[in-house]
Simulated assay, not measured.
Amino acid sequence: MSDSRQGVIACDGFNLQYRIEGEGRPVLVVGSALYYPRCFSGNLRHHLKLAFMDHRGFAPGNACPDKSQYALPLLLNDIERVRSELGLGQVTILGHSGHGFMALEYAKAYPQNVSHVVMLNVAPDYSPAGHAAAERYLDESVCPERKALLAQNMAKLPAAIAAAPDKAFVTYCLLTGPKSWFDPTFDASHLWQGVETNMTMFDHVWGEVFRDIDITRGLDALDRPVFLGLGRHDFLVPPPWRWEAVREKFRDLTIRVFERSSHAPFLEEPALFDAELLGWLNR
């Protein structure tokens, strides 16, 4: 039967929103319980029970400035708390962009509660070398309209962040749209409507934890299949070839690169994305 629930689960003083939609095997989507339900297709909800959850960086009303509260083990514990309280049983854990790291590390920490791992539009790390590769990938691509729009937006970025520093993460995501959407003119503001962010969390986790992460640690013990979905025109994160250095360390890794997508193939090519994901899960 189709499940449709929403609410809040308190984790150490952080109120994590959740939203459950659809029917079928449970997929726990880590990130924002407001943003991500707007991104996945209605068709997918006929096959999967999608449980969207906030992490602490998206928890409404969160003004905590203590970065120790955003340590990765705490974030993983929150995922487990939500999974358990929602009674989801064994789940497919899904993370997009930096949340892909959270999904993989959760599977390592709680393998008994995971059947499959889905990582979307993420690189093996967010190191300086990786970001430099992303800049080269864009610079060497022949896409003058994309580059012109990006330059215009980047000129606006400092003033936009200064005007609303608490919204710096969302502002950055919106103004880097030419890097992250196949259509460089796409306006993603409706996806972010009502989403709150804590910049201490994002600065620490994206700027430090994911910069230094070693995803190969513990991979030898992970026997769950992993699906890695990437976009050919994704210039927001390091390019797909960065995975060559680590792909052989996975026991069971399936990579799919979507040709007419950037940073969100589930929204940009939903029919193809749904077919690839469901086909992989059913295999």
Rank of each mutant, 00 (worst) to 15 (best):
Y137E: 09
T176E: 09
A132Q: 13
V205Q: 03
T254K: 04
L76V: 03
D66Q: 12
R136I: 05
S32F: 07
M119N: 03
A164S: 12
P240I: 04
F266C: 04
D212F: 02
L76K: 04
M199K: 05
I9H: 07
A132C: 03
E105P: 00
I79T: 10
R211W: 04
E276S: 14
G207L: 14
L44E: 02
R19T: 04
L281Q: 08
R260F: 12
V237W: 01
T254G: 00
G231D: 08
L150W: 10
V114S: 04
V237A: 11
E268M: 01
K179Y: 14
G98D: 01
P128T: 01
L28Q: 10
M154L: 15
F202M: 03
C39P: 00
I161D: 02
K167W: 03
C173E: 11
D78M: 01
G279M: 12
G24Y: 00
L174T: 12
D12V: 09
A164R: 12
A148L: 09
L72Q: 10
L272K: 08
D183H: 08
E269S: 13
M154R: 13
G89F: 07
H204C: 14
I255G: 01
L74H: 07
G218F: 03
G57A: 09
R56L: 06
P184K: 11
L281R: 08
H47V: 02
R38H: 09
L219W: 03
A160V: 07
R260C: 11
D252P: 00
F52H: 14
E269C: 12
E140I: 10
L150K: 08
N43M: 06
S115T: 10
V122C: 06
F250H: 00
W181H: 15
V195C: 13
F40C: 07
Q152E: 10
R217H: 08
D203K: 05
A151W: 07
E196Y: 06
